[in-house]
Design a protein around this nucleic acid. Structure first.
Lengths: 221, 221
DNA sequence: TTTTACATTTTTGAATGCAAAATCTGGGAT
DNA sequence: ATCCCAGATTTTGCATTCAAAAATGTAAAA
């Protein structure tokens, strides 16, 4: 198994919440499960620690990082900045074909909204945001975006929504698509910020400071 | 020696250009120099690879990452976004005392400009940009900023300047301080973007694609 | 002289072993 | 019963070792 694959698999385990925030990461156990020895596992943990997903305590092992409200706020703030930038750049560089793809994804997402299928809605939502970042044509930006969103993913995409908020989010997405189609960078940037600000408020209101026992089951309000 | 220290020391070696971009990283040699064994060294290299400073080639060792013009453009673009965000947040959160400190640093920097001391000027310049990012009060943002700027540092702070460009940069810094003092987030964000855009143009015009032989001696035009 | 095939050496990536640190356990004092 | 401390156990962090892959060198053939 390649180094990057090890990192990826552990990242997935953490993001799935299989090892909940704050819990110790059982080295020996993970080694057996991934069928690798401690050396490559520990290399991966150091990388994930640099990413902020793992917390290393000298001589006391590693734990799945726990996010405080402040961390969450900070991450959302940065995420806003990155998406705003991505929106501007995307408007300069996006091709017609890419816009069409996003429009299609948008339409599909709206259908999921109509169906009240929050999981599929979130999935489509995420794909759209990622497509915009990709369209920005800046791999450095894309990399940072991936790493920042990974850390808030569980909060962002597993927060219950009221019908009002959900309706607002869909309306914002209409505006996002519209700005993209008009290639209105400033406008898109502005809408994306507002969209994320609202999302952040939802998440923080939901009291999302991660603790050992944070329940991450998807609930629909 | 602690893990973070190992990472830091190797990072410094790379940023100093002691191992030039594209050059192989001599594992054995670094081990002897840092007086550590290969295991912790390799852990550090993987972390630095995730940061983008090191390139890992499976079964062929690691090299100091080489930056293409495109990489440089992408990094500057992201850096602009991060500084713009930092500027906005700083205006919301900065204390009077912090503003005074930045004003003092600014005054000192202007003196170095008058003296024609580019090295000291750059040093002061960097301190100001970092102080703004710190004043934003967002450690996640600060972390990304550090990592992005690290990668372009050598280009950003080791590019020759024409008297015209230098004068413009100083003028922009006046505007930056002014916006900060007025706590004009939008204005500061705008100026910072322009400032970095100009810097990027300088750097790219200087033909900064990093190659094995890139001469990083500080030249004053 | 250049090229190709092969053997040797070097380097890489990962497993194992070992010393130091931390955690756990149980018995005795308060 | 609770608290505390000494010994045992586990876990961590690093050095070393080992197998596999790549690089290098050599010699024969074109």
């Amino acid at each position: 198994m390649l180094h990057e694959e090890v990192v990826g698999r552990i990242r997935a385990i953490l993001l799935d919440g299989e090892i909940p925030p704050g819990a110790r990461i059982p080295e020996r156990e993970l080694c057996e499960r991934l069928e690798i020895s401690r050396t490559p596992l520990r290399e991966a943990l150091k990388v994930l620690a640099a990413e902020g997903l793992v917390q290393l305590l000298p001589h006391r092992g590693s734990r799945a990082a726990k996010l405080t409200d402040k961390d969450m706020r900070d991450l959302f703030e940065v995420c806003q900045g990155l998406e705003a930038l991505a929106g501007e750049l995307a408007c300069e560089r996006i091709t017609d074909a890419e816009i069409d793809e996003i429009a299609a994804a948008h339409a599909a997402m709206v259908l999921h909204y109509r169906d009240g299928d929050l999981i599929q809605y979130y999935r489509g939502n995420r794909a759209i945001h990622e497509a915009i970042v990709t369209a920005a044509g800046n791999p450095v930006l894309a990399g940072l975006y991936t790493s920042v969103t990974a850390r808030i993913r569980r909060a962002r995409y597993v927060t219950p929504m009221t019908p009002q908020r959900w309706a607002l989010a869909v309306k914002e997405h209409d505006a996002i698509l519209n700005a993209l189609q008009r290639r209105d960078g400033a406008g898109l940037s502005h809408i994306l910020r507002a969209h994320l600000r609202h999302k952040r408020e939802e998440v923080l209101q939901a009291g999302f400071a991660e603790t050992e026992g944070t329940d991450l089951t998807l609930r629909i309000a």
